[in-house]
């Protein structure tokens, strides 16, 4: 077992643990913190896959911005301090179905032939090439994505804004 493999297993264990924490934690804030753990672990996986830029983006946007946003949402939607049931009634069936899904996916992965898995050799992509591809070859999708982001932002503001009319209507 090489060092890289060891690091992978540790990171994978952390990611799975974080994921389980997200879906199992009884405290919503803990769940959010577990999500940060899982996202950081995924960033580690990206580094192992030689995509440092992606890891950077993951940490900045996901672990930083998105999770903080979720924490804010949790705070805004809290109903007093009443203890709440966190898990729905259909959890046993959901567990069975999810396990089945996992089994199917893993079986598929295990029984298929994948290219380049013989020696585990990967290719490191330099930042310059990535940037060039993003702004040349993928320029149009990039612009569309930024437009989507802008519209989503505007929509979010419109939806979340506390209008006086709306308050009257809801009362």
């Amino acid at each position: 077992m090489t060092v890289a493999q060891l690091i992978f297993y540790v990171i994978a264990a952390l990611a799975v643990a974080g994921g389980l924490g997200v879906v199992l934690a009884r405290n919503t804030v803990y769940a959010a913190l577990f999500l940060i753990l899982a996202l950081l672990a995924v960033a580690g996986v990206y580094i192992l896959l030689a995509s440092e830029f992606l890891a950077l983006v993951q940490v900045l946007i996901y672990a930083g911005a998105v999770t903080v946003l979720m924490l804010f949402a949790l705070m805004l939607t809290r109903v007093g301090d009443l203890p709440e049931t966190m898990t729905g009634a259909q959890w046993p069936l959901a567990a069975v179905v999810s396990s089945l899904l996992m089994g199917l996916l893993v079986t598929t992965v295990a029984t298929s032939d994948w290219p380049g898995d013989a020696d585990g050799t990967i290719t490191r992509i330099p930042f310059e090439q990535l940037g060039e591809a993003l702004f040349r070859q993928w320029a149009v999708p990039f612009e569309i994505a930024s437009l989507v982001l802008l519209i989503a932002l505007v929509g979010a503001i419109v939806l979340a804004r506390d209008e006086d009319d709306d308050v009257e209507e809801s009362e």
Binding site: A4, Q5, D117, D119, G120, I122
Partner: peptide, 9 residues
């Protein structure tokens, strides 16, 4: 190219 001996699977 770097080799980390981690299979794709």
């Amino acid at each position: 190219a770097v080799s980390q001996q981690i299979p794709l699977e």
